[in-house]
Nucleic acid binder design. Structure first.
Lengths: 155, 155
DNA sequence: TTAGATGCAAATCATTTGCAATGAA
DNA sequence: TTCATTGCAAATGATTTGCATCTAA
Protein backbone atom coordinates (compact mmCIF):
# COMPACT_ATOMS: atom_id res chain seq x y z
CA UNK A 1 0.00 0.00 0.00
CA UNK A 2 1.05 3.53 -0.65
CA UNK A 3 3.14 2.09 -3.45
CA UNK A 4 1.12 3.64 -6.29
CA UNK A 5 3.72 6.06 -7.54
CA UNK A 6 2.96 9.28 -9.30
CA UNK A 7 5.72 8.59 -11.81
CA UNK A 8 5.04 7.95 -15.48
CA UNK A 9 5.20 4.48 -16.98
CA UNK A 10 8.70 4.89 -18.42
CA UNK A 11 10.09 6.09 -15.12
CA UNK A 12 8.47 3.24 -13.22
CA UNK A 13 9.92 0.71 -15.64
CA UNK A 14 13.33 2.28 -15.27
CA UNK A 15 13.12 1.97 -11.50
CA UNK A 16 12.03 -1.62 -11.69
CA UNK A 17 14.89 -2.47 -14.00
CA UNK A 18 17.35 -0.64 -11.78
CA UNK A 19 16.12 -2.42 -8.66
CA UNK A 20 16.13 -5.79 -10.35
CA UNK A 21 19.73 -5.25 -11.28
CA UNK A 22 20.71 -4.04 -7.81
CA UNK A 23 19.05 -7.02 -6.18
CA UNK A 24 20.46 -9.41 -8.80
CA UNK A 25 17.24 -11.18 -9.53
CA UNK A 26 16.05 -11.47 -5.94
CA UNK A 27 12.48 -10.36 -5.33
CA UNK A 28 12.15 -6.59 -5.13
CA UNK A 29 10.03 -6.00 -2.06
CA UNK A 30 8.86 -2.68 -0.69
CA UNK A 31 10.94 -3.28 2.44
CA UNK A 32 14.11 -3.76 0.42
CA UNK A 33 13.50 -0.68 -1.65
CA UNK A 34 12.77 1.36 1.45
CA UNK A 35 15.81 0.15 3.34
CA UNK A 36 18.19 0.68 0.45
CA UNK A 37 16.93 4.20 -0.13
CA UNK A 38 17.23 5.02 3.57
CA UNK A 39 20.81 3.75 3.72
CA UNK A 40 21.69 5.80 0.68
CA UNK A 41 19.94 8.82 2.11
CA UNK A 42 21.82 8.42 5.38
CA UNK A 43 24.98 9.36 3.54
CA UNK A 44 27.69 8.21 5.88
CA UNK A 45 26.90 5.45 8.30
CA UNK A 46 23.86 4.01 9.91
CA UNK A 47 23.35 1.34 12.53
CA UNK A 48 20.77 -1.41 12.23
CA UNK A 49 18.75 0.07 15.06
CA UNK A 50 18.74 3.57 13.62
CA UNK A 51 17.82 2.19 10.22
CA UNK A 52 14.98 0.27 11.82
CA UNK A 53 13.80 3.43 13.52
CA UNK A 54 13.74 5.43 10.30
CA UNK A 55 12.13 2.60 8.37
CA UNK A 56 9.42 2.25 11.01
CA UNK A 57 8.41 5.83 10.49
CA UNK A 58 7.73 5.06 6.81
CA UNK A 59 6.39 1.52 7.21
CA UNK A 60 5.23 0.93 10.74
CA UNK A 61 4.97 -2.82 10.41
CA UNK A 62 8.55 -3.52 9.34
CA UNK A 63 10.41 -5.75 11.74
CA UNK A 64 13.94 -5.56 13.10
CA UNK A 65 14.53 -9.08 11.84
CA UNK A 66 13.82 -7.93 8.30
CA UNK A 67 16.26 -5.09 8.73
CA UNK A 68 18.99 -7.48 9.80
CA UNK A 69 18.16 -10.00 7.10
CA UNK A 70 18.13 -7.30 4.47
CA UNK A 71 21.43 -5.88 5.64
CA UNK A 72 22.85 -9.37 5.43
CA UNK A 73 21.57 -9.66 1.87
CA UNK A 74 22.92 -6.25 0.90
CA UNK A 75 26.28 -7.26 2.25
CA UNK A 76 26.26 -10.42 0.15
CA UNK A 77 25.24 -8.46 -2.93
CA UNK A 78 28.05 -6.03 -2.23
CA UNK A 79 25.65 -3.12 -1.88
CA UNK A 80 26.72 -2.16 1.60
CA UNK A 81 29.71 -2.59 3.81
CA UNK A 82 29.63 -3.57 7.45
CA UNK A 83 31.92 -1.69 9.81
CA UNK A 84 32.56 -2.49 13.41
CA UNK A 85 33.97 0.79 14.61
CA UNK A 86 35.22 -0.45 17.95
CA UNK A 87 31.67 -0.85 19.16
CA UNK A 88 29.46 -3.76 19.97
CA UNK A 89 27.07 -3.06 17.16
CA UNK A 90 27.76 -2.56 13.49
CA UNK A 91 27.49 0.40 11.21
CA UNK A 92 26.51 0.02 7.59
CA UNK A 93 27.36 2.22 4.67
CA UNK A 94 26.80 2.14 0.96
CA UNK A 95 29.76 0.48 -0.71
CA UNK A 96 31.57 3.21 -2.58
CA UNK A 97 34.17 2.84 -5.21
CA UNK A 98 36.41 4.95 -3.02
CA UNK A 99 37.69 3.06 -0.04
CA UNK A 100 38.08 4.95 3.18
CA UNK A 101 38.81 4.67 6.87
CA UNK A 102 37.33 6.23 10.00
CA UNK A 103 37.93 8.65 12.82
CA UNK A 104 35.47 8.23 15.69
CA UNK A 105 34.94 10.84 18.38
CA UNK A 106 34.85 9.30 21.84
CA UNK A 107 32.74 12.03 23.21
CA UNK A 108 30.06 12.82 20.61
CA UNK A 109 30.35 9.65 18.53
CA UNK A 110 30.72 11.55 15.29
CA UNK A 111 32.27 9.48 12.51
CA UNK A 112 34.63 11.21 10.11
CA UNK A 113 35.85 9.46 7.00
CA UNK A 114 39.24 9.80 5.44
CA UNK A 115 41.27 8.10 2.80
CA UNK A 116 45.01 7.92 2.42
CA UNK A 117 46.65 6.08 -0.42
CA UNK A 118 50.10 6.05 1.22
CA UNK A 119 48.64 4.40 4.31
CA UNK A 120 46.83 1.80 2.25
CA UNK A 121 49.95 0.99 0.28
CA UNK A 122 51.98 0.52 3.44
CA UNK A 123 49.28 -1.60 5.04
CA UNK A 124 48.93 -3.83 2.01
CA UNK A 125 52.66 -4.31 1.96
CA UNK A 126 52.64 -5.44 5.60
CA UNK A 127 49.93 -7.96 4.79
CA UNK A 128 51.87 -9.37 1.89
CA UNK A 129 55.05 -9.53 3.94
CA UNK A 130 53.20 -11.75 6.39
CA UNK A 131 51.96 -14.06 3.65
CA UNK A 132 48.38 -12.86 3.99
CA UNK A 133 45.93 -12.66 1.18
CA UNK A 134 44.24 -9.46 2.34
CA UNK A 135 40.53 -9.05 1.80
CA UNK A 136 39.72 -6.24 4.20
CA UNK A 137 41.54 -3.37 5.81
CA UNK A 138 39.92 -1.63 8.73
CA UNK A 139 41.62 1.30 10.35
CA UNK A 140 40.07 3.59 12.82
CA UNK A 141 41.18 6.11 15.32
CA UNK A 142 39.41 7.14 18.45
CA UNK A 143 39.87 10.46 20.11
CA UNK A 144 38.19 13.75 20.70
CA UNK A 145 37.17 15.89 17.82
CA UNK A 146 37.98 19.58 17.65
CA UNK A 147 34.54 20.67 18.75
CA UNK A 148 34.40 18.36 21.78
CA UNK A 149 37.86 19.46 22.80
CA UNK A 150 36.78 23.08 22.67
CA UNK A 151 33.67 22.42 24.67
CA UNK A 152 35.66 20.65 27.36
CA UNK A 153 38.03 23.57 27.61
CA UNK A 154 35.16 25.78 28.69
CA UNK A 155 35.03 24.10 32.10
CA UNK B 1 42.12 -22.53 50.00
CA UNK B 2 45.09 -23.89 48.16
CA UNK B 3 46.62 -20.48 48.70
CA UNK B 4 49.31 -21.61 51.14
CA UNK B 5 52.31 -20.96 48.95
CA UNK B 6 55.56 -22.83 49.24
CA UNK B 7 57.51 -19.59 48.84
CA UNK B 8 59.61 -18.09 51.62
CA UNK B 9 58.45 -15.09 53.61
CA UNK B 10 60.54 -12.54 51.64
CA UNK B 11 59.25 -13.82 48.33
CA UNK B 12 55.68 -13.74 49.55
CA UNK B 13 56.08 -10.14 50.72
CA UNK B 14 57.59 -9.19 47.40
CA UNK B 15 54.63 -10.68 45.57
CA UNK B 16 52.17 -8.92 47.82
CA UNK B 17 53.88 -5.59 47.31
CA UNK B 18 54.00 -6.16 43.55
CA UNK B 19 50.32 -7.08 43.42
CA UNK B 20 49.31 -4.16 45.59
CA UNK B 21 51.05 -1.86 43.22
CA UNK B 22 49.55 -3.49 40.13
CA UNK B 23 46.07 -3.30 41.58
CA UNK B 24 46.63 0.26 42.86
CA UNK B 25 45.36 -0.34 46.32
CA UNK B 26 42.32 -2.43 45.33
CA UNK B 27 41.89 -5.67 47.26
CA UNK B 28 44.22 -8.38 46.01
CA UNK B 29 42.01 -11.42 45.68
CA UNK B 30 43.00 -14.87 44.57
CA UNK B 31 40.78 -14.53 41.52
CA UNK B 32 42.49 -11.32 40.43
CA UNK B 33 45.93 -12.82 40.88
CA UNK B 34 44.93 -15.91 38.96
CA UNK B 35 43.35 -14.01 36.09
CA UNK B 36 46.24 -11.61 35.71
CA UNK B 37 48.76 -14.43 35.64
CA UNK B 38 46.72 -16.34 33.08
CA UNK B 39 46.46 -13.31 30.81
CA UNK B 40 50.19 -12.79 31.05
CA UNK B 41 50.83 -16.46 30.41
CA UNK B 42 48.54 -16.37 27.36
CA UNK B 43 51.08 -14.20 25.63
CA UNK B 44 49.19 -12.72 22.72
CA UNK B 45 45.45 -12.46 23.03
CA UNK B 46 42.76 -14.18 24.97
CA UNK B 47 39.01 -13.91 24.92
CA UNK B 48 36.88 -13.63 28.06
CA UNK B 49 35.46 -17.07 27.46
CA UNK B 50 38.81 -18.73 26.96
CA UNK B 51 40.16 -16.98 30.04
CA UNK B 52 37.18 -18.21 32.00
CA UNK B 53 37.84 -21.73 30.77
CA UNK B 54 41.46 -21.69 31.83
CA UNK B 55 40.66 -20.06 35.16
CA UNK B 56 38.00 -22.66 35.86
CA UNK B 57 40.57 -25.41 35.58
CA UNK B 58 42.54 -23.77 38.39
CA UNK B 59 39.65 -22.50 40.47
CA UNK B 60 36.49 -24.38 39.63
CA UNK B 61 34.16 -22.00 41.42
CA UNK B 62 35.16 -18.81 39.59
CA UNK B 63 32.31 -17.20 37.70
CA UNK B 64 32.17 -15.67 34.26
CA UNK B 65 30.84 -12.50 35.85
CA UNK B 66 34.01 -12.19 37.88
CA UNK B 67 36.07 -12.64 34.75
CA UNK B 68 34.25 -9.81 33.03
CA UNK B 69 34.34 -7.57 36.10
CA UNK B 70 38.03 -8.21 36.53
CA UNK B 71 38.79 -7.52 32.88
CA UNK B 72 36.88 -4.28 33.27
CA UNK B 73 39.00 -3.40 36.28
CA UNK B 74 42.23 -4.32 34.52
CA UNK B 75 41.24 -2.11 31.64
CA UNK B 76 40.63 0.80 34.01
CA UNK B 77 43.96 0.20 35.71
CA UNK B 78 45.64 0.11 32.31
CA UNK B 79 46.86 -3.44 32.83
CA UNK B 80 45.19 -4.87 29.76
CA UNK B 81 43.91 -3.62 26.48
CA UNK B 82 40.62 -4.55 24.92
CA UNK B 83 40.61 -5.29 21.21
CA UNK B 84 37.59 -5.84 19.07
CA UNK B 85 39.17 -7.51 16.10
CA UNK B 86 36.20 -7.27 13.80
CA UNK B 87 34.38 -9.83 15.87
CA UNK B 88 31.40 -9.75 18.15
CA UNK B 89 33.42 -10.55 21.22
CA UNK B 90 36.58 -8.94 22.56
CA UNK B 91 40.13 -10.08 22.91
CA UNK B 92 42.28 -8.94 25.78
CA UNK B 93 46.02 -8.59 25.92
CA UNK B 94 48.54 -7.32 28.41
CA UNK B 95 49.21 -3.68 27.74
CA UNK B 96 52.72 -3.56 26.36
CA UNK B 97 54.95 -0.59 25.93
CA UNK B 98 55.20 -1.53 22.28
CA UNK B 99 52.08 -0.70 20.39
CA UNK B 100 51.06 -3.00 17.60
CA UNK B 101 48.31 -3.81 15.17
CA UNK B 102 46.66 -7.01 13.95
CA UNK B 103 46.23 -9.36 11.04
CA UNK B 104 43.35 -11.76 11.48
CA UNK B 105 42.92 -14.89 9.39
CA UNK B 106 39.35 -15.28 8.17
CA UNK B 107 39.60 -18.98 7.95
CA UNK B 108 41.49 -20.17 11.04
CA UNK B 109 41.09 -17.08 13.21
CA UNK B 110 44.79 -16.83 13.93
CA UNK B 111 45.86 -13.39 15.10
CA UNK B 112 49.22 -12.08 13.97
CA UNK B 113 50.64 -8.92 15.44
CA UNK B 114 52.71 -6.38 13.63
CA UNK B 115 54.00 -2.92 14.19
CA UNK B 116 54.95 -0.28 11.68
CA UNK B 117 56.26 3.08 12.71
CA UNK B 118 55.76 4.65 9.26
CA UNK B 119 52.11 3.63 9.31
CA UNK B 120 51.60 5.02 12.77
CA UNK B 121 53.21 8.31 11.86
CA UNK B 122 51.01 8.67 8.81
CA UNK B 123 47.91 7.76 10.76
CA UNK B 124 48.67 10.20 13.54
CA UNK B 125 49.19 12.90 11.00
CA UNK B 126 45.79 12.24 9.46
CA UNK B 127 44.20 12.50 12.90
CA UNK B 128 45.87 15.81 13.62
CA UNK B 129 44.93 17.15 10.20
CA UNK B 130 41.31 16.50 11.11
CA UNK B 131 41.64 18.30 14.44
CA UNK B 132 41.38 15.10 16.44
CA UNK B 133 43.11 14.47 19.71
CA UNK B 134 43.91 10.82 19.07
CA UNK B 135 43.81 8.39 21.97
CA UNK B 136 43.62 5.10 20.16
CA UNK B 137 44.60 3.71 16.80
CA UNK B 138 43.19 0.41 15.73
CA UNK B 139 44.17 -1.14 12.47
CA UNK B 140 43.44 -4.62 11.40
CA UNK B 141 43.46 -6.58 8.25
CA UNK B 142 41.42 -9.61 7.46
CA UNK B 143 42.41 -12.18 4.93
CA UNK B 144 43.69 -15.68 4.57
CA UNK B 145 47.00 -16.63 6.05
CA UNK B 146 49.61 -18.51 4.08
CA UNK B 147 48.78 -21.85 5.63
CA UNK B 148 45.03 -21.59 5.02
CA UNK B 149 45.68 -20.52 1.45
CA UNK B 150 47.85 -23.58 0.90
CA UNK B 151 45.28 -25.90 2.40
CA UNK B 152 42.55 -24.50 0.17
CA UNK B 153 44.68 -25.05 -2.87
CA UNK B 154 44.68 -28.76 -2.20
CA UNK B 155 41.04 -29.06 -3.22
C1' DT C 1 34.67 -4.40 61.34
C1' DT C 2 33.54 -3.00 56.86
C1' DA C 3 33.95 -1.52 52.14
C1' DG C 4 34.61 -3.86 48.28
C1' DA C 5 34.65 -8.49 45.76
C1' DT C 6 32.43 -12.76 44.56
C1' DG C 7 28.97 -16.29 42.79
C1' DC C 8 24.71 -17.04 41.14
C1' DA C 9 20.82 -16.14 38.52
C1' DA C 10 18.36 -13.03 36.06
C1' DA C 11 18.65 -9.05 32.90
C1' DT C 12 20.46 -6.64 28.69
C1' DC C 13 21.72 -5.81 24.07
C1' DA C 14 22.78 -6.89 19.44
C1' DT C 15 21.82 -10.28 16.31
C1' DT C 16 19.77 -14.71 14.54
C1' DT C 17 16.33 -18.23 13.68
C1' DG C 18 11.88 -21.22 13.39
C1' DC C 19 7.60 -20.97 11.63
C1' DA C 20 3.26 -19.78 9.75
C1' DA C 21 1.41 -16.16 6.85
C1' DT C 22 2.26 -13.18 2.86
C1' DG C 23 3.72 -11.42 -1.56
C1' DA C 24 6.61 -11.10 -5.92
C1' DA C 25 7.24 -13.22 -10.21
C1' DT D 1 1.05 -21.29 -8.33
C1' DT D 2 5.36 -21.41 -6.02
C1' DC D 3 9.27 -20.21 -3.69
C1' DA D 4 11.40 -16.42 -1.34
C1' DT D 5 10.39 -12.95 2.03
C1' DT D 6 8.19 -11.15 6.07
C1' DG D 7 6.60 -10.48 10.95
C1' DC D 8 6.47 -12.26 15.22
C1' DA D 9 8.25 -14.43 19.05
C1' DA D 10 11.50 -17.14 20.93
C1' DA D 11 16.54 -18.38 20.84
C1' DT D 12 21.41 -17.04 20.95
C1' DG D 13 25.75 -15.41 22.53
C1' DA D 14 28.41 -11.84 24.66
C1' DT D 15 28.34 -8.96 28.44
C1' DT D 16 26.22 -6.70 32.63
C1' DT D 17 23.77 -6.29 36.95
C1' DG D 18 21.07 -7.12 41.52
C1' DC D 19 21.62 -9.21 45.55
C1' DA D 20 22.97 -11.98 49.37
C1' DT D 21 27.28 -13.80 50.93
C1' DC D 22 32.14 -13.70 51.60
C1' DT D 23 36.85 -11.71 52.31
C1' DA D 24 40.98 -8.62 52.20
C1' DA D 25 42.62 -5.07 54.86
Amino acid sequence: MGEKSGLGFDMRMRNIRKNKKEFSGRPVTSQRKLLLSLIKKAGGHISAKELYGRASRKNESISLATVYRTLQLFKELGLVQERRLGQVYCHYEVKESTDHQHLVCRSCGKVTEFESLPIRKLVERVGRDHGFNISKIELYMEGNCQQCNREQDQF
